[in-house]
Write a protein that binds this DNA or RNA. Structure first.
Length: 763
RNA sequence: GGGCGGUUAGCUCAGUUGGUCAGAGCGUCUGGUUUACACCCAGAAGGUCGCAGGUUCGAGCCCUGCACUGCCCA
């Protein structure tokens, strides 16, 4: 910290000066612009008449939102082109309530249409007035002390709090007939971020970092280096939109006030000499003034802004200012994860100071460090902020804080974690949703129950003398080509979903990763695979033991891999179950102490497209039959025969009859060569299916459904035909789009024909 | 005042470079005590993607304007 301060001072980038700063009267310290929260507030605009000296009965009327500061007025300013006030330019006014006379000056900054067009100038208590004062060489009269009470400059008002003073000033003006109109006025006031006290702009002597200035030796400014780091892509901010926010802020950066009048913090390494009045800035505590040798030196009482030392973290963490091996090895780091509210406060300062102090440190191989290697980190991921259900920022004063402990106790840590991950889509904040959390608690429960089912079967298998080899676990499962369809399918699925999860994580799309896993675990693994695998887990004497063992192995392998896939999202549950897998299935300890230490499943797309395709058809058939049964009123429990007309060879419905029977509650599958008459039919481009059911069906409802269906199909066809009939489309659209549309058109034509026929048969 | 977002099913939200993308969960409705799970299963209904123009063969997605809304900075 000292090294940084002294070096910047030597480079001419740290200076001390009297400026208007944001002053918190309660904390009694200066605070930076970033620590001030601006709020709109209904206030008043008072008009005050300042008598013109030497012109009895004439006044210049000013408008102000802060009458008490008039005691520190040193001028009244008007716009140079404002005709109303031309005659007063250069004249003096008598400042009411005091015995001072102040000039009328012209300054471009004054807005003629605001208030009366004449403004009081109080350089010690307003940043704009300070600038005007500097331009016109006016003095600055501070009228308040560090607690925002009126000081000795104010005579009769001395000792009054600023608001009490305001009241008295107004009363006195009123009594003297100098108070004009009072209007309602919305103005913006600054409050201290920490204690919410209204900030007082106050003239005081502070330390600043000149962020936009070239250093003494020449070269780019700190802010410029920090801008380039992002603009030139050495630092990539995700979501990208924050790059713009960052650059916009950097482009409008003022000097950074780094001194604080607090009693804790790093003290400023500057000693003031009582003898000669000069300053000694030193790395080591000096015993004498470097200018005159006097021993009467006192260290500056101020301490540094906490973000100054925090901003140095990227280099100090690796031993800077010493040059250590850690620095060579780890700087620049890869990724910083943080919330956007910290982007300016900390991230920007780390970039500025990191780039600055690393730039003259050679690379490990001795070569010169280039810009890309000066940055403290290569990537910044800005995560979402959690807000309350009404999207309000949580705050203690508003009382809308959601207590994470309470939520975690209620829904479980894993459910809360999964909820946040699933809602963390980049660039938007998270409105905390209890309903979503409830859903993911159910998900955790679902996984737990799936595990119970699996372990139960492992027990049964063991009783039947079937054991799963421990060596089979811990990797991506592999299945034989002649394995049952559901085994081939779930393994292909696991692979493609794992690949998708990895891709999503690589791009910080956590919600996508979470949703993919959710869908895989619940939708694919539980709803389809587990239901089908029940058929294979037959531990009776007459079963094919090799087949049962293979099924059980795939089941365990898939579950184990799925747990690893899920573990970053639900660490506690998966840890527990993963250990249980090894203990229950293999009666042994897992290969590592924690699931977190295992290899994350990578997966691959298209490992078994044939299984994917065949299983999709099977699902389509089962779903169609289920819907059909419901439509024609087959009781839930009743199993019925179905009849299928398949248009494709590969519909291996025959070999998968068991699956269809179990999942669609079917007794018998008949096949036919052609469309038959009768009711209770459904068509898809791949097959027609009929549920054979004796009871009369609701023909009018069925007709209505078919009519609706037909209308939809015709709409689809019309749109496809329109596009395909457009030469421009055929000429310009890519081939796969045109092909896809052609297939859609053909399929739709076929369906329309079938639907029409079905309608005819209903009569 | 300057900047950055958002507006998609009743609710909470996805929808990466314009085409096979209109989706999920919750809620609603219907039916189910199938030996893992009713914190469950099956099925269904529900949206002219804020409004108005424009670019394009093609727009939830790109451009312009407007309305409402949130945030950041001054």
């Amino acid at each position: 910290m000292r090294e940084a301060f002294v070096r910047l001072y030597e480079e001419g980038l740290i200076y001390r000066g009297a400026y208007i700063v944001n002053w918190c009267p309660r904390c009694q310290t200066a605070i930076s612009d970033l620590e001030v929260a601006h709020e709109e507030q209904q206030g008043k605009l008072w008009e005050i008449r300042y008598p013109v000296v030497g012109a009895a009965g004439e006044f210049v009327t000013v408008a102000t939102t802060r009458p008490e500061t008039m005691l520190g007025d040193v001028a009244v300013a008007v716009h140079p082109l404002d005709e109303r006030y031309q005659k007063y330019l250069g004249k003096k006014l008598r400042l009411p309530l005091t015995d001072r006379e102040i000039p009328v000056i012209a300054d471009e900054w004054v807005k003629s249409d605001f208030g009366t067009g004449a403004v009081k100038v109080t350089p010690a208590h307003d940043p704009n007035d300070f600038e005007i004062g500097k331009r016109h060489g006016l003095p600055a009269i501070n009228v308040m002390d560090e607690t925002a009470h009126m000081n000795d400059e104010t005579g009769a008002y001395a000792g009054l709090d600023r608001y009490a003073a305001r009241k008295k000033v107004l009363e006195d003006l009123e009594a003297q007939g100098l108070l004009g109109a009072v209007r309602e006025h919305v103005n913006t006031i600054g409050k201290c971020d920490r204690c919410k006290t209204v900030v007082e702009p106050r003239l005081s002597t502070q330390w600043f970092v000149a962020v936009n200035k070239e250093p003494n030796g020449g070269g780019a400014s700190m802010a410029e280096l920090a801008r380039r780091a992002v603009r030139e892509g050495h630092i990539r901010i995700t979501p990208e939109q924050y790059s713009k926010v960052y650059l916009n802020w950097m482009d409008n950066l003022y000097d950074w006030c780094i001194s604080r009048q607090l009693w804790w913090g790093h003290r400023i390494p500057v000693w003031h000499c009582a003898a000669c009045g000069m300053m000694t800035v030193a790395r080591q505590d000096p015993t004498a003034c470097t200018h005159c040798g006097s021993a009467e030196i006192v260290q500056d009482p101020d301490v540094l802004d906490t973000w100054f030392s925090s901003g140095l973290l990227p280099v100090t963490v690796f031993g800077w200012p010493r040059h250590e091996r850690d620095f060579d090895v780890f700087y620049p780091t890869q990724l910083l994860v943080t919330g956007f509210d910290i982007l300016f406060l900390w991230v920007s300062r780390m970039i500025m100071l990191g780039c600055w102090f690393s730039r003259d440190i050679p690379m490990a191989d001795g070569s010169k460090r280039e810009a890309k290697d000066t940055v403290p980190f290569h990537k910044v991921y800005i995560h979402a902020l959690v807000r309350d259900a009404e999207r309000q920022k949580m705050s203690k004063t508003k009382g809308n804080v959601i207590d994470p402990i309470h939520i975690v106790e209620h829904y479980g840590t894993d459910a809360v974690r999964f909820t946040l991950a699933s809602m963390a889509s980049p660039g938007t904040d998270i409105a905390f949703s209890e309903a979503r959390t409830e859903g993911y608690r159910a998900f955790a429960n679902k996984i737990w129950n799936a595990a119970r089912f699996i372990f139960m079967n492992v027990e049964k298998a063991r009783e039947a003398g079937i054991e799963v080899d421990r060596a089979a676990l811990g990797a991506m499962p592999a299945v034989a080509d002649n394995a049952p369809i559901e085994a081939r399918w779930i393994v292909a699925r696991l692979n493609s979903e794992a690949a998708e999860v990895n891709a999503a994580l690589g791009e910080y799309r956590f919600h996508e990763a979470a949703n993919t896993i959710y869908q895989f675990f619940w939708g694919d693994f539980c709803d389809w695979y587990l239901e089908i695998v029940k058929l294979r887990l037959d531990f009776s004497e007459e079963s094919d033991r090799a087949a049962v063992k293979a099924a059980l192995t795939t089941l365990l392998q898939t579950f184990e891999a799925a747990l690893r896939l899920l573990s970053p999202f639900m660490p506690f549950l998966t840890e527990e179950l993963w250990h249980a897998v090894y203990r229950m299935a293999c009666e042994s300890e897992p290969p590592t102490k924690s699931i977190a230490l295992t290899r994350y499943p990578q997966g691959a797309a298209h490992t078994d497209d044939a299984a994917d395709r065949d299983f999709a058809l099977l699902q389509e058939l089962i779903v169609t039959v289920r819907a059909l049964r419901k439509d024609i009123g087959v009781e839930e429990k009743l199993a019925v025969p179905i009849r299928i007309w398949a248009t494709q060879e590969r519909l291996s419905f025959g070999t998968n009859a068991e699956i269809i029977q179990r999942l669609a509650r079917v007794t018998e599958i008949r096949t036919a060569e052609a469309l038959s008459e009768g009711t209770g039919m459904r068509s898809t481009p791949n097959f027609d299916v009929q549920v054979i059911y004796e009871k009369t069906i609701d023909t009018s409802a069925e007709r209505e459904r078919l009519a609706k269906e037909l209308a939809k199909q015709q709409k689809t066809l019309a749109s496809a035909e329109k596009q395909l009939g457009n030469p421009a489309f055929l000429a310009k659209a890519p081939a796969h789009i045109v092909e896809g549309l052609r297939k859609q058109e053909a399929d739709t034509r076929l369906l329309i024909e079938k639907t029409r026929k079905a309608l005819e048969e209903l009569g």
